[in-house]
Computed example of a mutant assay.
Amino acid sequence: MAKKRGTETVRDMVLSMAAIGVVVGIIWFFIPHDENHDPVQVVGYRVELDQARRSAPYPVAAPEGLGKGWRATSVTYEDTNPKAVHWHLGFVDPQNEYAAVEQSNADAEAFVASVSHDARKSGTRTVGGETWDRYEGPKYDALVRQKGGVTTMVTGTAPADRLAELAAALQERSGQ
């Protein structure tokens, strides 16, 4: 004879919870756990870089010879508007801080404000023999260089020395 609804006991509830706990424990046991796993998803960017260098109306910048520990995490090339071609290459530095190379032939002031999340100019810095404008903001800091109608930015949460390291490694090329 079936129990009448509403007559369950605390004992029934404890037994149900124990059964659920056993199932959860078994599932947890079979799921791999790797404490040394790097949560950063690394991407290759050579194909996109070659495409951008072939089609961009300006020499496209990408780092060469960055130190160990730098990992590329994102890459995009947007050329639907020939007056606002945008190259982006994102990295995580050896201390797991974000840094990115951003380039565009769009209006420099609007481009810098948009990409740096409204960082403000705070001075200059010489990197690799070239003068870059320094920007500081609530979200990102940046190094910005304007040359030949193209704005090149190195921006992110990485400290200023890491941003300078990335900027110093940039090589600009086109038409490969």
Results as ranks from 00 to 15, higher is better:
F29S: 13
A142V: 04
E136Q: 11
G128I: 15
T157M: 04
L89M: 13
I31E: 00
V24D: 01
T73N: 09
G25D: 02
S122E: 08
Y77L: 15
I31D: 03
D12I: 09
L143E: 03
T124A: 14
A110I: 04
S174A: 07
L49V: 11
V42C: 13
I20N: 02
E35K: 05
V92I: 10
V60A: 10
A2P: 11
A119R: 05
H86S: 07
E136I: 02
P82C: 14
A168H: 12
I26Q: 05
W70A: 14
Y140H: 03
P57E: 15
P82Q: 11
T155M: 07
H37E: 06
E172Y: 00
T76E: 12
E97C: 10
A164H: 04
T76D: 14
E48I: 12
S55I: 05
F29R: 13
A52H: 15
S114Y: 12
M13W: 04
L166V: 03
Q51P: 07
G90M: 08
A19I: 10
K3G: 11
Q171F: 01
R125E: 09
A84P: 13
Y58M: 12
E35G: 06
G148I: 05
D34I: 10
A160R: 08
Y135C: 02
S55W: 07
Q176Y: 10
Y77Q: 15
K83N: 13
